[in-house]
Design a protein around this nucleic acid. Structure first.
Lengths: 222, 222
DNA sequence: ATCGCGTTGCGTATGCCGTACGCTACGCTC
DNA sequence: GAGCGTAGCGTACGGCATACGCAACGCGAT
């Protein structure tokens, strides 16, 4: 009755994760349903559960996969500051390529898979030269991660509002009906076209953070 | 047959929002279901929809309400730096008191209600003395918001893991089975008890960001 | 060959979810 | 007391994740 394997060979955890990522990329995380993933695989819904405990575990695996895909290069020869820029640009690219990552990583429990740990290790070692106390270094990484996440949210929010690449545009749109006279600063902000491109806006904000971090590191004491 | 009003008087949008916040506080956002809210109000499920368009709108209203509850004090007499600490501590308190805020505000669309706009206006005006270009000021606020959000996530993640108030504890727990020799920096981090309390850890991290912001402001040029 | 068994695929069914639709009963105003 | 606007809500629907158990196969032991 039932063919043992579907049109694309037998199921596997890897294939399921790959397909789920594709679905989430296209229709968003909330519309990524087990049924849709199974359909795209030419499989029955319940077949997925032979390879994945539940949907949450699948999402975790998706995050791990993407994190692994954006592995970090050898760090030798580049300074901590450039390393942080690399880190931030990688994550930034990942968030823009896979918008669902924003929701998936916004849960209270941070990811603890091998790829995530490796990324954290890479980032921490890049900060060695600053000789920060370990908790301060970890906090610095967290701060950068959160900055990237927040910036990506702004840009993606703008994209969804159909505002092209200008992060300010979406605000202007949403604020259409608001009484801007009551909020003079917001009004001034809305009237301000970003003098730089989206990438520069992002990188400059990162440098603000890095300046703060640098002031606490060894070069500061020397 | 059906009494026109429930045991607690007629329904109202306000009462629904209040009750929903209570439910979310107790059972979490994902378990905050229309049915549960209605039950607690002694009302039928569909009655809620006379006052609220759909669940998303209800959640938005909840966020607005909480944002308004944590209104900001008069700013006269305090410097921008202290103002940012006030801002951060308020948000911090809100996130810890209402853990669901983390998920609710992690969507791509930032809240645009009156209370949220007022909060943004307050923060922007507090930065006036730095004379930053408006986009840079907005970015600074965003950075701080994201920092608060991320720190709250760490602390709440630890709480959920039953680790009391030490943010490092939960990491240690989760990393139990991991090969820490492969990640020396993570190992060092795990072995490190936070030398400060949770509040100091948070405030110090904020100061790191503020240092970076200050370096771009007017006092820096003077 | 045949049997037995572990493994993989999946159909069916359950319970919960948000919510569309339309009825009911009430408080008005004339 | 007749008509009507409105708040409450019962019922029903479609979609969701997933528990359970059967079916079809691969394969080593007999």
């Amino acid at each position: 009755m039932s063919p043992r394997v579907g049109p694309s060979g037998p199921l596997s955890r890897e294939k399921i994760v790959t397909t789920a990522i594709g679905v989430a990329d296209e229709v968003g995380l909330e519309a990524m349903t087990m049924k849709r993933v199974a359909e795209r695989l030419g499989a029955g819904v319940m077949s997925l559960y032979r390879h994945v405990a539940d949907k949450d575990e699948l999402i975790e695996a998706m995050v791990e996969r993407v994190t692994g895909d954006y592995a970090y290069p050898d760090r030798r020869g580049i300074g901590w500051r450039e390393a942080m820029h690399v880190l931030a640009r990688r994550d930034w690219a990942a968030f823009l390529a896979h918008p669902w990552l924003l929701s998936a990583t916004a849960t209270v429990a941070p990811p603890f898979g091998a790829a995530s740990l490796a990324a954290m290790e890479w980032a921490l070692s890049a900060l060695d030269e600053l000789e920060l106390p370990p908790p301060a270094a970890a906090r610095a990484i967290m701060t950068i991660n959160n900055y990237v996440q927040g910036s990506a949210r702004v840009v993606l929010g703008g994209r969804r509002a159909g505002a092209g690449d200008d992060p300010g545009r979406s605000w202007r749109q949403r604020l259409g009906g608001v009484d801007l006279d009551a909020f003079p600063h917001l009004g001034r902000l809305v009237g301000h076209p970003l003098p730089e491109g989206e990438g520069d806006w992002f990188a400059e904000g990162l440098d603000v953070i890095l300046d703060g971090i640098q002031a606490r590191g060894r070069p500061h004491l020397a």
